[in-house]
């Protein structure tokens, strides 16, 4: 479903290469975990896929069902079904969270030639999703992420995911900074969401999220390269031994 081919990338403003040719195939219904030390390029990979400003792909392609995402605008990628739960969701003061959700939902509906929903219809659609995440409807009245706690921001990301029902989701350290209850809510929501038609990429440092959402594959990225892939047992091994044993031989 998602096919990352020899992807190289750098920052807009610097020549320093951050991704050095990543190859990764993610099939329908699969869950992939991506792990690796801080600063190894995990977020950069997700931002290149989402089309974030400041990052520039220099080689390779990212195919979603055969279409190269890198040729599309960021909003087209989203409407084609790519969803990124940001590691650090940005605050947007003055923009109502509920309206934002509906705007996003309707943008996709329109793109797909489906009916757009009015505020009442949309409220009905939200109700069950809020419940699933144990979120109070008062969240919708606030500005997008504005003054939200770290945990609230992450729940809000997952709420957006449920509303937009994307094909490919990338969760960039969605588990970082979550307490136990929030972690469970988020994990349950992701499990509820995923099915044989979805692909899920989980970027994480910890086994605890992977205890809830079982990955089919685990990859390790270091210094912009994918250095190891394995089964879910690799994550357990990493939890125990850290990354050094993998990274050291590269240095040697």
């Amino acid at each position: 479903m998602l096919d990352i081919k020899n992807l190289k990338a750098k920052l807009d403003e610097e020549d320093k290469q951050i991704l050095n040719g990543i190859n990764l195939k993610i099939g329908k219904g699969e869950v992939h975990a991506i792990m690796g030390p801080n600063g190894s390029g995990k977020s950069t990979l997700s931002k290149i896929i989402s089309g974030a400003p400041g990052y520039e792909p220099t080689e390779g392609e990212v195919l979603l069902n055969g279409k190269n995402l890198l040729d599309m605008t960021a909003d087209e990628r989203a409407k084609e079904g790519v969803f990124l739960a940001f590691q650090y969701p940005v605050e947007i003061p003055g923009v109502n969270n509920g309206s934002f959700l509906r705007m996003a939902y309707n943008a996709k509906q329109k793109y797909q030639g489906n009916k757009e929903l009015d505020p009442l219809e949309f409220e009905a659609l939200l109700e069950e999703k809020l419940k699933l995440l144990n979120m109070d409807p008062s969240f919708l009245e606030r500005s997008v992420n504005h003054g939200f706690s770290g945990g609230e921001k992450k729940r809000n990301e997952i709420l957006q995911m449920l509303v937009l029902d994307p094909q490919v989701v990338i969760l960039d350290e969605t588990d970082s900074g979550l307490d136990i209850d929030a972690l469970r809510d988020v994990a349950e929501a992701v499990n509820h969401f995923k099915n044989e038609d979805k692909a899920v990429i989980i970027i994480t440092h910890y086994q605890r999220l992977l205890n809830y959402i079982k990955p089919d594959f685990v990859h390790v990225i270091s210094k912009g390269s994918l250095i190891k892939s394995g089964s879910k047992d690799l994550a357990l091994e990493l939890e125990e031994k850290g990354y050094d044993w993998l990274v050291e031989p590269v240095k040697a």
């Binding site: 089309g51 974030a52 960021a74 909003d75 409407k79 940001f86 940005v90 003055g94 500005s143």
Partner: peptide
Amino acid sequence: EEQIHYFEQRGIPAEEALGSIVNGF
């Protein structure tokens, strides 16, 4: 740009994003 991209990542084009931020303001 990060704010604009946040909208875009949710499927909302940049111009609408800016309009929405300005109207909120």
